[in-house]
Structure formats: C-alpha cells, structure tokens
C-alpha cells in the first residue's frame, strides 16, 4: 500500500498533449475515481502510473520516492483493463499465477486460489479466458491484478463491457474487495454513477487537466468550473449566457456571466420566469420538459403525476436564488455569487 503523489505530470506526443500538468495526492488506501470525457487523458495517466508510458514532464512519487524511471515490473502496480487483457493462451489459474512467476513466492498456488475464492471464480480455474462470460473475465482480471498484493490498483473502465445488472453487483464487489485489502485504488470511468457510488473522492479531468477534485457532492452542487457543471449530472445543468442588463434578472456580479441552474431545481410556480414548453420527454417517474424562456432555452424536471404540460403551454418557472451558480467568462465559478428574478416569491 502506498501514498501516491503526482506533481505537474505531463505526457505529450509529437502532435498532441494528452496529459497537461496534473497535481494529485492520494492517501494510502484511498479509493479515487477519475471521471472525464473520451480522450481527456485518463488512460494515459494510468499508463504512466503503471510505467508503460514514460512521462514527458513532472514527477510520480510512491511513498515520497520518485519512480519515473522505475521499470513497470518493479513498481508493484496491479491494473485491470477495459478489455481485461487476459492471456488467451493460459488457463484462468495460470493467468492468476502469472504475476507470481516473477516473484519469489513459496505459496504461489495457495495465494492464487485464495484470491480466486475472494472473487468467486474457484469453479472456473481450469477454463480458458475465451470460455468465460464478461463478468467472469472481469473477476479473473481483478484477481490477477490483486494476487501480487500491489501498492496501487488501477482500474481502467473495468465495468464498461458489462450489462446493467452485472455492473451493479460488480460495483459493490469491487468496493468490498478493495476495502477488505485496503489497497490504494484509482478507478477510471465514464459513468458518473459509478464514480460517485464507488469512490471516496472524484477527480474530474478534461483535456489533460484536472478540473476539480472532491466528493461527489462537491462536484454536483459546487462545480468549480463550467466544464464540471456541464459534465456532471444527467440531465445536464442548464447553462445560460446572461447579461446584467437583461430585464428581470438581478446578478451579484457585473459583466456578462453564465448562469447555471440544475433542471431539478427549477419548478413551475405562480410567479417566475415566463416560458413556453417546446418539447416533452416522459422518463418514467419524472418528465423532462424543454422550454423557451426569457433567459433562453431551459430544461426542467417535474414529477409525471403533476398536471402535465404539453407543447405550446405557457407557464412560469421559479427557483431558489441560493441554488444558482455564476461562472465568469474564463469558466471559473464566482464564489458566493447568485442570481435572482424580479418577482420570485422569496422563500
């Protein structure tokens, strides 16, 4: 187990910069999730941590020691790939034993079997990877990554190939196993729910940089940047370019800003921003409406049971000024600044 520290870590290829100076410290035994859009440098970061890519700048420290030039085989890192990367020419047991072939381990077989027991694949030990289902392969990959008792466990979108039910069970399983072993873990994912349910801390990346780190709640309620605000949450936050001179709107700041307002925090009311419904998407328990308002196009969620609106209906939308977020033109949130509407009935 180890404390992991990244200092100004960068990776560039001739044409492109994949990771652009990130700083990050993970406490021993911490479970962090990296969340970000495709191509933002998540895998590249993991590959630098595991040692198969060499950083073009910055430092990687394990327990305070710089490991930039340490060979992958000497770092004692376990990694699970999106495609699992099982060795097709070996049986499940041989796959799990593989990392121990390079260590002086007396009870290799026993350890491998214990690990198989932990991830519940003991009946499959003699099979080939091609004879396993996706979920089973994923457990084998996890066992193989953990059997050498790594300092650091890296999970690169390990659940993306699984169906919805299996994903739910595997989330809980992985969390259980990792907690049991107490290994420092980084999970890469596209899936916010996965990140927020599994990790202690969520790291949001974009274009090779870390936009924000914090608890799931932080990222959801108090996004530091416009990017995080737009990326986290589904349906996404309404982001409206507004002007202080706009009639009816009162802002805590001067100059043009972007107003952020979550769809579930907007509600139909007696007074508020006038709007006309332009699109209706029933989503089961709730219905997502799109409306043209005086502030621009907004989306809002209402319980389906409420009297429903239809295309063309006019209504007023109210919100709590404390729920509004304002972002400066450079994309950073303006702290403690909010917006309100002229005739909102203040709560």
């Amino acid at each position: 187990m180890a404390e992991i520290e990244l200092r100004n870590l960068s990776k560039a290829w001739d044409a492109s910069v994949a990771v652009d100076g990130i700083d990050l410290t993970l406490a021993d035994g911490e479970f962090a999730a990296i969340l970000g859009p495709s191509g933002c440098g998540k895998s590249t970061t993991l590959f630098m941590l595991s040692g198969v890519y060499t950083p073009t700048g910055g430092e990687i420290r394990f327990d305070g020691a710089v490991v930039n030039d340490v060979e992958p085989r000497d770092r004692n890192v376990g990694i699970v790939f999106q495609s699992y990367a099982l060795y097709p020419n070996m049986s499940v047991l041989q796959n799990i034993l593989f990392p121990l072939r390079f260590k002086q381990v007396d009870d290799a077989d026993k350890r491998a079997r214990e690990m198989a027991e932990l991830v519940q694949i003991t009946p499959l030990l003699d099979r080939r990877p091609s004879q396993l289902s996706g979920g089973q392969q994923q457990r084998v990959a996890l066992a193989r990554a953990l059997v050498k008792r790594p300092n650091l466990l890296l999970l690169d979108e390990p659940l993306s190939n699984l169906d919805a039910t299996l994903r739910l069970t595997m989330r809980a399983e992985i969390r259980r196993i990792v907690t049991e072993l107490g290994v420092t873990t980084i999970l890469v994912t596209h899936d916010q729910l996965e990140a927020t349910t599994m990790a202690d801390r969520v790291i949001c990346m974009n274009a090779g940089r870390i936009e924000q780190t914090g608890s799931a709640e932080d990222l959801y309620l108090r996004p530091d940047t416009l990017f995080v605000a737009g990326f986290i949450g589904s349906p996404p936050m309404n982001l409206l370019a507004v002007d202080p001179s706009a009639a009816g709107l009162r802002l805590d700041v001067d100059g043009p800003v972007t107003l952020g307002l979550r769809p579930e925090l907007l509600r139909a009311a007696e007074t508020g921003v006038p709007a006309t419904v332009s699109h209706v998407e029933p989503m089961g328990r709730e219905t997502l409406y799109t409306a043209q308002s005086e502030l621009g196009q907004v989306r809002f969620l209402e319980p389906t049971a409420r009297p429903n609106w239809a295309f063309g209906d006019m209504l007023k939308l109210a919100f709590d000024p404390a729920d509004t977020l304002l972002f400066a033109p450079d994309g950073q949130r303006v702290p403690d600044a909010h917006a309100t509407w002229k005739d909102l009935a203040h709560a």
Binding site: V52, G78, F81
Partner: peptide, 12 residues
C-alpha cells in the same frame, strides 16, 4: 493491453 499487463505483472 495483454503486453502492458504482462509488464506490470513483472515480466521483462
């Protein structure tokens, strides 16, 4: 990824 995996597993 199989080759990367082998390297992190300790192989040269």
């Amino acid at each position: 990824d199989t080759e990367m995996s082998a390297l992190t597993d300790g192989a040269t």
